[in-house]
Design a binder for these strands. Structure first.
Lengths: 226, 226
DNA sequence: CTCGCGCGGTGACAAAGTCACAGACGCCGC
DNA sequence: GCGGCGTCTGTGACTTTGTCACCGCGCGAG
């Protein structure tokens, strides 16, 4: 949580801010608080209204929603160079949100007070562009989630997900429960489909992780039309 | 499609604009185009990028998503006094969207060119507030849809929907197909549940419409925890 | 070593979605 | 008033997904 009020090097990650007049940049650097968060920390949750606008420098924040019954679904992820829309939205419209944000890695970010945020929006077209396009991207993400949940088969979505989350070795480090949350389904459903994938020689299963055995086969499944 | 460049009375519907300095208001009135659309007209669709920022004065626009397989789901509705976020988002981030907007009633709106929009955002805190809070509300709507689709039972959602769409007489004018689209499910599923509702004395069914017979019973269903 | 807990496996059943097709109603033209 | 036609609704059979209950295993802490 080190405050480095004078250091403005982080701005290089945001082209929108790079274009600001020097005077603006200095003012911004003066009020911005640089912060670091450990992995697996809850950044925001229902009932905890944020006080700052946040720019992510490094790391990933997962945003998910929890239903009364305990089931969860991942809505989207925020990565370096992006702004956290949920906090922005709370800041700007005083609405409480149902979603929860959790760091997946160590996260470095800068926090900007609301007044400075308003100022930037008013004076910097580039900053406006940044904020609006992040909003738009989140809306697109959410629409994609709706489409997947409402219309796509679980096996297809599961294949997509493990392909997307596999490292270069083809390893995916995730429990069945974690994958179920990604898809907004139940753990048993994931277990059964993975079992079937294994039977078909598409993956090798192990406790807490799995390995892609037939990327092409999985890809075919992931891209199937039906 | 009458252009009434000099008439600024519509601004009264937007408190955010009412607070603008007189000079700004005049400038805005000069560039705003007042338009009227008939019911059941497609306002925007994938591939048709909009050129104006839109403020709805009267009427309702339904925004929905269509899956490749032909199934559809209603995402949210835009009513008088609100802005059409999809067009805004397209305007601001040059992204193509998968959603489609359709007027449900005759719609009156004003269109503002992108340059005037930029100008307003820069100069009017009230206008900023309007745009950002509409963005936030749409995100909240979408999150609500995700939650419903992923976690709630169809009978509960159907009960909620017909309660919400009933007029004072308790009449709902909608085909089973239309209700299915509201919920993002299949027509047969709606038919079967409505049949069951009828068997339990909750509704009376007729072709193309239905009547609530037991509001309390439906409410109990709609608010059930399971 | 062993205890406990998180992880995964399974069977049985309920709910929802799919497919195919049959009636039935309402409207329009004649 | 009558046929014809398109839309709306009903239904059965089957698949997929979700729920519930419960079990066993393995890994890590103590």
């Amino acid at each position: 949580m080190a405050a480095t009020a004078a250091d403005a090097s982080w701005m290089q990650q945001f082209p929108a801010l790079d274009g600001l007049p020097a005077a603006e940049r200095q003012r911004l650097a003066a009020v911005a608080q640089s912060i670091t968060l450990p992995a697996d920390k809850v950044v925001f949750a229902p009932g905890r209204p944020p006080e700052h606008f946040m720019l992510l420098l490094e790391g990933v924040v997962r945003v998910q929603q929890t239903a009364p019954g305990g089931r969860e679904i991942v809505l989207y992820r925020v990565a370096g160079g992006e702004t956290c829309i949920m906090t922005t939205a709370c800041l700007l419209s005083h609405e409480a949100y149902a979603a929860e944000g959790v760091t997946e890695t160590e996260v470095k970010a800068v926090a900007i007070p609301k007044t400075a945020f308003d100022d930037l929006i008013a004076t910097s077209p580039g900053f406006r562009q940044l904020v609006f396009s992040d909003y738009s991207n989140r809306i697109a993400d959410l629409m994609h989630v709706v489409e997947e949940v409402a219309f796509e088969r679980i096996d297809k979505r599961l294949a997509q997900k493990i392909l997307a989350r596999a490292d270069v070795e083809g390893e995916v480090a995730a429990t069945h429960q974690a994958l179920a949350v990604e898809l907004g389904t139940a753990r048993e459903v994931v277990s059964r489909h993975l079992k079937e994938f294994q039977r078909r020689g598409l993956v090798d299963l192990a406790r807490g992780r799995l390995r892609l055995a037939d990327r092409e086969g999985l890809r075919a499944l992931a891209e199937a039309e039906n």
